[in-house]
Design a protein around this nucleic acid. Structure first.
Length: 197
DNA sequence: GGATCGATCGGCT
DNA sequence: GCCGATCGATCCG
C-alpha cells in the first residue's frame, strides 16, 4: 500500500484536513499493524488562529508544529491524555491537522486490550482514545511519518467524496473571531465512529 | 512563584 | 449533564 508522502502534507492545511478523511492511519507496534480509517479531523492554522497552540509563538511544547510537514505533533493535556496532529504547510509555518477519530480496521484485539475491553466504537473515537489504543505518546512528537522505516504513517486509500463530508466548528472552540468561528472540523457523514455527533 | 485552565475521558447522578 | 483526575504551559503580580 502506498504511503502519503511529504508533498501531500506540504499544502494548505484545510485541503490536507479534508483529504485526510478516508485515509488509513497505521501504527506498527511490536511488529503488528494497528490501523484505522480517519473519519474526523480538525485544522489548526498559524499564530493568528487563536485556538492553535502556536497562538503565543513558538515554545518547546509546540516546536514540532513549526517543523517539517508530514511529521507528528503530539501533545500532552489534562494531565493524562495525548493527542496526535500531523504537521502541514511549509517548514517554519505552524499548522497541523488534529486526528480526532478513526474507524478501527486492523489490530482491534490489541486496541481493545489497551483500552480496557471497550466496545468497538469507544476504541478510537476521540483524539486521546486513539492515542491510547495505538500507543502514541510524546515519543512520537516530531516523528517523521514519511520516513520509510517509520512505525507511524498514513496509507493512501480512496478518499471521501465531497457530499459525504460534514464540516462544523472545532470542538471546544468558540468565539466571534473569524478563525474561531471557522468550520475547520471535518467529519465523514454518517460514520458511527465520529467522536461527537 | 503561584494561579489558572486546557484541541479529554470516564464514571456517577 | 456534571465532575474529578492530574500535568505543564502561560499569564499575572
Amino acid at each position: 500500500m502506498e504511503r502519503l508522502g511529504r508533498d501531500f502534507f506540504a499544502r494548505d492545511t484545510l485541503a490536507v484536513a479534508r483529504e485526510l478523511l478516508g485515509q488509513r492511519l497505521v501504527r506498527v507496534l511490536e511488529g503488528k499493524r494497528l490501523s484505522g480509517r480517519i473519519v474526523e479531523v480538525e485544522a489548526y492554522v498559524g499564530e493568528e488562529d487563536q485556538a492553535c497552540h502556536a497562538r503565543s509563538g513558538r515554545t518547546e511544547r509546540n516546536a514540532s508544529m513549526y517543523g517539517l510537514p508530514g511529521c507528528a505533533y503530539v501533545y500532552f493535556i489534562y494531565g493524562m491524555h495525548h493527542c496526535l496532529n500531523v504537521v502541514t504547510e511549509q517548514e517554519g509555518f505552524p499548522a497541523a491537522v488534529l486526528v480526532r477519530a478513526l474507524e478501527p480496521l486492523e489490530g482491534i484485539d490489541v486496541m481493545r486490550a489497551r483500552r480496557g475491553g471497550r466496545t468497538e466504537v469507544e476504541l478510537v473515537s476521540g483524539p486521546a482514545r486513539l492515542c491510547q489504543a495505538l500507543a502514541i505518546d510524546r515519543q512520537f512528537d516530531g516523528a517523521d511519518l514519511c520516513e520509510s522505516d517509520a512505525d507511524l504513517f498514513i496509507e493512501q486509500e480512496e478518499g471521501v467524496p465531497g457530499g459525504a463530508v460534514v464540516t462544523g466548528p472545532r470542538v471546544g472552540v468558540r468565539g466571534d473571531d473569524a478563525a474561531l468561528a471557522a468550520l475547520w472540523r471535518f467529519c465523514v457523514r454518517d460514520s458511527r465512529y465520529v467522536s461527537r455527533r
